[in-house]
Design a protein around this nucleic acid. Structure first.
Lengths: 157, 157
DNA sequence: TATTGTTATACTCTATAACTATA
DNA sequence: TATAGTTATAGAGTATAACAATA
């Protein structure tokens, strides 16, 4: 799974792959780091059976109780059509719920169930441990620098 | 992991979404930055009609002429089954080619065609411009720091 | 007429098992 | 028997169009 960066041949006769300019590409290195991070996330949150997107949805509902689906999708850049099965799954697991809006009966207000709140608390503990393992590789200072750089890459400024 | 400080509503009446701990999550910020980077890549390489994976495949074949498919997949962490249609497409476009191995007739050695080499040169120019735009957001020093941090995140060390 | 949530659909990426032809 | 490449298939993630209920 891990590409090596050096060129030449190994003693066993197997070829060591030359990645060339890719190791100097922000895009490619971002992708590799993200693949590693996702794998670690899945391993860390296996106990609560949450994928990264599901974890993010629960967190954002907790931070924004009563948020409507369209609001959610606009903020996160998710297509509203794709949000439906995602939320269906969380509702089916009894972690989140839709409540039909009182003022606008077209819309649904989203809330965590007590069970969702409980699971999310446990998920946050596991997620913190996962983040701590990532931080251990780059140091606390490195983590702050990384978050700052990633924010700059994303924001239009 | 700490929640961020701000919350509340915007003046226009639209709700300002609270992302909470997500903005302090390496995993989430990696994902957001990568989405931005991929969008920029697609825009930058539209002219040559190469997606990030296709660009990476052409580059690695150029750096490792004669590489076999299994070697390639082992090094890049791609499933060999998924590599087949990927390579079929590049071959169909006349950019790369399989040559049946002389010593082992089960395997294919991969090469760029002259047209593939030409297109890749142009693609590299476009890719460099894209990387320069990313670098402009974080500075040359920031870029070096970022690449170093991303490498540390990926490598087991 | 416009908007919210929904359905249907399609295309990409990824993951696994089983097949073929060679070794 | 083991391996290289292939096929088939299934699951996620993502994109657009169109529909019903409501505004």
């Amino acid at each position: 799974m891990r590409p090596t960066a050096r060129s030449g041949r190994r003693s066993g006769g197997a070829r060591s792959i030359e990645l060339g300019p890719l190791t100097r590409s922000i895009g490619y290195m971002l992708r590799r780091a993200q693949i590693t991070a996702v794998a670690g996330f899945l391993e860390a949150l296996k106990e609560v059976e949450l994928r990264p997107t599901q974890f993010a949805v629960l967190l954002i509902i907790r931070e924004n109780p009563g948020i409507r689906q369209t609001e959610f999708c606009d903020a996160l850049g998710i297509q509203k059509a794709n949000f439906v099965p995602l939320l269906n799954h969380l509702e089916w697991r009894g972690l989140a719920e839709r409540r039909t809006g009182t003022s606008d009966r077209r819309s649904c207000a989203l809330y965590l169930t007590p069970r969702g709140q409980e699971l999310l608390r446990r998920a946050c503990v596991l997620h913190d441990a996962h983040e701590a393992r990532l931080t251990a590789r780059i140091g606390k200072r490195g983590r702050e620098v990384l978050l700052s750089l990633l924010r700059k890459l994303h924001d239009p400024l």
